[in-house]
């Protein structure tokens, strides 16, 4: 029964939503939107699970790490609290020999960040309108934390992408085989065609040969072979989604439901 009921729900909901896509009249017309709304409501409650898991894991790591750090400090005997304070930077950043106790300082930062944001959001700290104010009011502490701490950190991670693109391109474009050589030549045309230099180096070409200028070649690569390849992939994806959805709806694919046994 633990599996049969979810399978039945999946079958009914899946079938109704497929039918609703072709019936605009109420109540079918907005059924998809309503089900998305139900999903969002469930997701909000599920967040308690996620948040709880985060606190539990990092709390355990913190307690274990601090315990080990205190034990390490106590080994020296005498005034161990003083030693603990002095050795704190060493103990905090991977100084512990036992691997399980390392990185506890990051767990501390995670928990501090989590609870600080939670308090700022729930209590609406610094919000000029108090409890009735919007949680994202610009004067509020929640928005302050977000703008001055979270956003720069996020931008930093995103900025890493530029360097990773360079390193990945370097590996991908090494002319190891015929395919890689074609990729290299194509990438060179696209890169050059997207810069002013691309237009400059082939500006001398006569009008009758303008299709051979680097910017035009780059546009051709993007509009013809690239687009054709992308569309082929998208058609395959659409068919894959249909087959996968049918397998899920009719209950052939049930791995995601977990076990039937207790």
């Amino acid at each position: 029964m633990r599996r049969q009921i979810p399978l039945l729900i999946t079958l009914i909901v899946g079938a109704v939503l497929i039918i609703a896509a072709f019936i605009p009249r109420a109540p079918f017309g907005r059924l998809g939107e309503n089900f998305s709304l139900y999903f969002d409501i469930i997701a909000v409650f599920a967040f308690l699970l996620g948040g709880g898991n985060l606190v539990r894991i990092h709390g355990a790591r913190l307690v274990r790490g601090v315990g080990m750090a205190v034990t390490e400090a106590k080994k020296g005997g005498g005034a161990w609290p003083l030693r603990f304070v002095i050795e704190f930077p060493f103990l905090a950043f991977g100084g512990l020999k036992d691997r399980r106790g390392r990185d506890w300082f990051f767990s501390l930062i995670t928990l501090l960040g989590f609870f600080a944001m939670l308090a700022a959001g729930l209590l609406k700290l610094g919000n000029p309108s108090g409890w009735q104010g919007n949680v994202t009011a610009p004067e509020g502490m929640f928005q302050d934390f977000y703008d001055s701490m979270f956003n720069p950190l996020q931008a930093t991670m995103y900025a890493l992408l530029a360097f990773f693109v360079a390193s990945a391109s370097y590996r991908a474009f090494r002319a190891k085989s015929a395919e890689a050589t074609i990729l290299l030549v194509t990438a060179f045309i696209i890169l050059l065609g997207r810069t002013p230099a691309g237009a400059y180096v082939t500006a001398w070409m006569p009008e009758s040969l303008s299709f051979l200028t680097v910017p035009n070649l780059a546009n051709w690569v993007m509009a013809i072979p690239n687009l054709a390849g992308q569309r082929a992939i998208i058609i395959g994806i659409a068919l894959g989604v249909i087959a996968m959805s049918l397998r899920v709806i009719i209950g052939i694919e049930r791995t995601y439901l977990g076990s039937d046994e207790k």
């Binding site: 997701a43 599920a46 699970l49 996620g50 898991n53 439901l257 977990g258 076990s259």
Partner: peptide
């Protein structure tokens, strides 16, 4: 995502 966490746990447990 929290729901993915719960689903993944059930899936691995079954496996």
């Amino acid at each position: 995502r929290s729901i993915v966490m719960s689903t993944a746990r059930e899936t691995i447990k079954a496996a």
